[in-house]
Nucleic acid binder design. Structure first.
Lengths: 258, 258
DNA sequence: CGGGAGGTTGACTAGCATCAATATGGGTGG
DNA sequence: CCACCCATATTGATGCTAGTCAACCTCCCG
């Protein structure tokens, strides 16, 4: 068997790709990311792998599956405040704030890599530009969460769901062919309801109309988008907030290489 | 006239207090914060002082008034995704992500101190522990924004408003006397509506019932809370997410002093 | 083949939006 | 100092969106 760190390199590479999409890193800094120690784990669906209030000593990089950040009200009604896709470091913020303010749960079975905070801290201490890049990555999550507030607060059910589908299609870089776009999206309607602040019954009805109008078909494992432009219009989707398409010359670095 | 930096020291001190409430900083690092150059400005009510998509070269520390972070949907319906109070550095995240993903607007007239990104960057480069403290501060904002999603997504009108009042009372450290608690809160009902994802008409009705039931009285300039326990119950408020009461021994520092 | 999770549909209800009219009150100019 | 005006607050009437409750279906898995 190959060493753990070695086999996980492709996954760390995906995380690194995400960082360098927005931040400028030296070769040495990039190597430092790839050299982070990892421990792979399967997490079960519908079971918190980070509980509310828990103190963690590691962050989780998703390599497969879909993970939800759950917050809840006093009655225990859960609201998904963020979805995370492969390549995301779910609880990067726990590096600086180890007490979890949200629970983390896989929506279906998922694979994660645990990376000890201690390793991240050692690395960021040695390479402050990496701390900066990680901070920047967290800030993109904030922008996404803010849009989530708008989605839930100022859009009707149809728009909310359309917006969510647009966001996930963009973040998952959906396959796009003539007149058809699709991506793997393994969620239940109840989970969609938790993400949009609706009930699963109403989600079901909205999905039905989207299907009937040949805009999009949300299945148990896959989403097929028939009319992207219409979906964007319905969801009032403006991808800018995702900061996914930063031109190379606009990538940032505050700290100078030493 | 005294030098600008000198007169603004008390305001920087308030910001520093906020940082040291959660992070451990050396004397030297604290002095570095207090020595940041500032430029005071009055901002008008209901006018964006940071526009959507704008690139900024400074961050804004609020010294007086109330500032809202606004996101909007395509129809221009605005949603407040965060409220900021004196002592908050509103767009700290712009240090690492200069393109604004939200607009900033004073709810009533406000005073802010502009601090150039260049100064913050110089300081954080010299004192990496400060970068860490600032990052941590941003992460607390994230936790607050996440709760905002829950508030808007999973609570009814009455609870939403109660929760918002509880949050602001806590963050503004409301005066508390026997059977009565109050804090200055200069917002219109329309702004409350934008914060809670409701209409101003419905906000008005809910405020009326809260007044009639002698729970809280929300006036144009001030909020008086008659029954804090009841308000907490109605709003399902759990102050934990604000991370306001970190015990001294739990304050954090990753980077060692050099 | 049975059981359970998730999806679908219908009937009814409730909460909040919408529209509209009126009241209030602080600020301004004459 | 008063009259006017605009922004904001208040209230009522009405309708729609989404919630609730409940039954039934479907499909997958053991």
């Amino acid at each position: 068997m190959l060493g753990m760190a070695y086999t996980d390199r492709p996954n760390l590479q995906r995380f690194l790709d995400r960082l360098t999409r927005r931040s400028v890193l030296t070769q040495e800094e990039q190597q430092a990311i790839l050299a982070l120690p990892t421990q792979a784990a399967q997490v079960r669906a519908n079971r918190d792998f980070v509980a509310l209030g828990e103190r963690t000593d590691h962050s989780c990089l998703i390599t497969d599956g879909l993970v939800g950040r759950f917050d809840q009200n006093a009655e225990g009604a859960r609201q998904i405040t963020a979805l995370h896709v492969p390549g995301d470091m779910v609880d990067l913020h726990s590096v600086v704030l180890p007490q979890a303010t949200s629970a983390l749960q896989a929506l279906s079975v998922a694979t994660i890599l645990r990376i000890p905070h201690s390793a991240i801290r050692l690395t960021t201490r040695k390479y402050p530009a990496l701390a900066e890049a990680l901070w920047r990555d967290c800030m993109v999550d904030v922008a996404i969460t803010s849009q989530w507030v708008v989605n839930v607060g100022r859009r009707n059910a149809r728009s909310r769901i359309a917006h969510l589908l647009c966001e996930m299609a963009t973040r998952l870089q959906a396959d796009s062919r003539i007149g058809r776009m699709s991506f793997s999206f393994e969620v239940t309607q109840a989970q969609l309801a938790d993400a949009t602040g609706l009930t699963s019954v109403h989600v079901n009805r909205v999905l039905k109309t989207l299907r009937e109008e040949r805009i999009a078909d949300v299945g148990r494992n896959e989403v097929v988008i028939w009319d992207w432009d219409e979906l964007v219009a319905v969801g009032e989707f403006d991808p800018n907030y995702l900061q996914a398409e930063i031109k190379p010359e606009e990538r940032l670095r505050i700290i100078e290489p030493n």
